[in-house]
Write a protein that binds this DNA or RNA. Sequence first.
DNA 1: ATAATGACATGTT
DNA 2: TAACATGCCATTA
Length: 125
Amino acid sequence: MSVFKDQITRIVQSVPSGSVLSYGQVAAYTGLPRAARQVGLVLREMEEDVPWWRVVNNSGRVSITGNWRADKLLQSKLLCSEGVEVGSDFTFVIEKYRFRPTDEQLKEFQLESDYREKVMLKYQL
DNA sequence: ATAATGACATGTT
DNA sequence: TAACATGCCATTA
């Protein structure tokens, strides 16, 4: 298992029920802010105990495709069951549910302090 | 080594 | 708004 996958696992597992975060956000927390696409590729093969459905497109929509064990409808249902109001067009107001880690949580992602501040700025509303 | 492949993001039309 | 184009980069073939 690569470090990248390992980090993604930890990050996604730290997201509470009812919250969501974008692929780019996950990427940013791994220290590779431009690796959003890879996050999706990794999630595709992820373990069962990782709440993959809380990871969404930054524009506020469920964008999952080409996965044999999960599709947009399943993800939408899972999110709805957690209180995220997903419309029939698979969109929702992301800023209403976006996961905003505490300083403590961010530190657990082991990022350098100056980089950590940038990430904080980018994803606070 | 090299090249193709995307559950993306962002800026331009 | 929404569609399109371009940049990205860890994996895999």
